[in-house]
Amino acid sequence: MAEATNAIAEQFDSSEQQHESAWLGLWAFLATEVLFFGGVFLGYIVYRHVYYESFVLASRTTNLVYGTVNTAVLLTSSLTMALAVHAAQVGKNKNLVRFLILTILLAITFMGVKGVEYYEHYKDHQIPGPSFVLKGAPEGELFYYFYFTMTGLHALHVVIGIGLLSVMALLAARRRFNPAYYTPVELSGLYWHFVDIVWIFLYPLIYLISRHS
């Protein structure tokens, strides 16, 4: 029955052509994402260079514990995602559903930690605006502006990922994937790893590089 969903769209000649097209398409999409994040990363790096001392001071006021926990959570979710794709590859549907749900739960954990972290910044008057206070760092507000913009954009991508993976979990629960057809799972995985990689850059940029200098 599952084989019935392997239909090839009419513009393609073979399932291999269809698969390769989808794969290449997602890579091209990720290229646009790199350029999208690139703009704001570039801004951050330029200003960090210009206002080095302020940025160092301000970055020391970020919460290293939350940042590190979230890094671990997100890296683990990439592992469970890879395991989900593998499960789809070998046709273990139950495992596929399990790993997808696990990935979603980890993503929600990430968002939860991020929420607590944001709340503490709010309590500490670290949200840019009239109530912003950070002693000794004249451009600390700019640092926190970048902090919220970059992590906010990343969080938006996590939320989109949660939605995407939920759809995949639902489809998997309905036995829509099999070893001959699991392109959507694979592509969602690729997207999820990308979201992870963005964080891999954000974590050192925001929490680490200035802490010991």
Binding site: T32, L35, F36, F37
Partner: peptide, 10 residues
């Protein structure tokens, strides 16, 4: 594909 996302972020 490579330039438009920069407009988007800007």
């Amino acid at each position: 594909v490579l330039a438009t996302p920069v407009l988007a972020i800007t």
